[in-house]
Amino acid sequence: MPARTMRADARRNYEQLVAAAIAVVAEEGPDASLNEIARRAGVGAGTLYRHFPTREALLAAVFEGRLTRLCARAEEAGEELPPGEALVAWLRSLVAHAMTDRGLGARMMLTQDGAGVDCWAMLRAAATRLLLPAQEAGAVRADVEVADLVELAAGIAQATPDPARADRLLTLTLDGLHPRP
């Protein structure tokens, strides 16, 4: 949400626009119709442009929200599960996130426009929060790096649109992360 304080109706419009954008981008990808987003939010195009002067600003708000929720899952998993299980649970969330992304993440990682979010820093912090304890517990090889995890998850998400197949590929990948006897 923008830094300035908003009136209740403006905040509601902002939230409706982001919610509608999440749905439309999930269906159509990052080049989704801005008019369709405004229509689904129940506002006019002028309201959309007052809150988001560019497509990239709207996409950044959508992506920041999705990425923030994904990173929060890392923290929750770390608190609720043993280290190795927490990492696996979050990696499954990361693959699912990337599969429903429809190119939004790649676009935001390239532009870094709009919300000023450092996507890589957020992902690195979330993955590190889980990787280091998993390594210390002996659940993951010591030579595995955060970038390895993020790139493997992204590769799996790109390899197949089938969630069951992606889960199988992730399971096979996770077997390779276990320490060797």
Rank of each mutant, 00 (worst) to 15 (best):
A89Y: 04
V150H: 07
H97K: 00
D101G: 03
L149I: 11
A126S: 09
A147G: 11
A142T: 05
P163V: 06
R102N: 15
R92P: 04
A106G: 15
L132D: 13
T160D: 14
E80W: 00
D162H: 10
A96D: 15
A86N: 03
G114E: 06
Q135K: 03
A139W: 00
P163M: 05
L94C: 13
A139R: 00
A127I: 02
L104C: 09
V117P: 04
L149H: 01
P83A: 04
L149V: 09
L104Y: 08
M108H: 03
P83R: 01
A89N: 06
E151T: 13
R124K: 13
T111H: 12
I156F: 08
T111G: 13
T111N: 13
L91P: 09
A139C: 01
A137Y: 06
G155K: 04
W120M: 12
T160M: 07
P163L: 06
L104Q: 07
L87A: 02
D101W: 05
A159N: 12
E151I: 13
G138F: 01
E80F: 01
R124G: 06
T160A: 12
V95Y: 08
W120Y: 10
H97N: 08
G138C: 02
D118T: 10
T128Y: 03
E85S: 04
Q112Y: 06
L91Q: 13
L91W: 03
A121S: 13
R129E: 14
D148A: 10
M99C: 09
E80G: 00
L149E: 03
G116D: 07
V95L: 11
A157V: 09
V140P: 02
D101N: 08
A139D: 07
A115M: 15
A86M: 02
L81D: 01
P161N: 12
L110M: 11
P133G: 06
R107H: 11
A98V: 03
